[in-house]
Nucleic acid binder design. Structure first.
Lengths: 160, 160
DNA sequence: CGCTAATATATCGCGCACGATGTAATCGTA
DNA sequence: TACGATTACATCGTGCGCGATATATTAGCG
């Protein structure tokens, strides 16, 4: 436990900085930024008929087709209990096909359909729109991403 | 369970950088950090019988009791369609009381119960645990928070 | 006073996210 | 070969988060 003797946060309301005034502010900042980014993505992805997690799954397949559910889950940091229904919705939308692997019947391989592969071109504009929406320089985004990734990596060790 | 494969020279797939390789990486970093932080919070808050959004709502009331649903929503960046059920669960848990204001019957004022106010002391250790879990210096957390807040603020203008 | 608009909250449906649990296939080891 | 352990997905229940919509109260305006 780190000494929390010095409380630097001023108790004068919370117009900015969120409802928590302590070190937990970082968590709220991440939490709020997550929702704010989702709100930016939503109208962009609505044209593609995707949600943000669905877009992530498609992006993983656009990078490398034929991944298993587990591989996609590791890429997206999601469990099968989240991925399975999500992939089923993508399959129902005709964007992917799921099939058990012949070599190992436990594994489900996910492949892009022609429609799903074609969607890549229409989605190509999305990252640029996001960059523009953030108003940040690409280099600054890169740095911020790296810091968040570092934060996440150190958090993962905290299990026990 | 959650595969935390060895960090470092892992040739398979994309252990770092996420599924999207472009500017959208920032979004995934925020997205993944959000979930990772939630996983750290969960065991801490489980002892208090709270989820993270519930903790945020309680923290807002610990800072200033008697806020309206709308005020809490603005502090947490949440709509009433999220807050109303959340507050009802807190009320069912005996932590708060909700009541229409006499001056304006449209407004619902949320007040801490004795049990809810008492929970503040037990929750006091949480921010310190979070700081320790991040492995960051307080100053660095502050800086990262500020950058994320700035990002969120610029995103909010992007509506149209 | 009556009527319309604005405000504050609530309800509904959908899609994540995850803990807990279930199931089938494969592996390990004797 | 037998059989328990492991692996890979799937299922179920709960709680967010939000778009769309509903309801009730208040404000504004002629």
């Amino acid at each position: 436990m780190v000494a929390k003797s010095g409380r630097g946060a001023e108790p004068t309301g919370e117009p900015e900085g969120g409802p928590v005034g302590d070190y937990a502010r970082l968590c709220f900042s991440v939490y709020a930024a997550h929702h704010a980014l989702n709100r930016v993505y939503q109208p962009l992805l609505e044209d593609l008929g995707l949600t943000y997690p669905q877009y992530l799954a498609m992006a993983a397949l656009w990078t490398r087709d034929g991944q298993t559910v587990g591989e996609i889950g590791r890429a997206l940091q999601l469990e099968t209990n989240t991925l399975t229904p999500l992939l089923k919705r993508l399959e129902a939308a005709g964007l992917i096909a799921r099939a058990r692997a012949k070599s190992d019947e436990r594994v489900v391989v996910v492949r892009l359909s022609a429609k799903g592969a074609a969607l890549k071109a229409r989605a190509a504009a999305v990252p640029g729109c996001i960059l523009a929406a953030t108003g940040l320089e690409a280099a600054e985004m890169e740095r911020l991403s790296a810091e968040l990734d570092r934060l996440r990596a150190s958090l993962k060790v905290e299990d026990a």
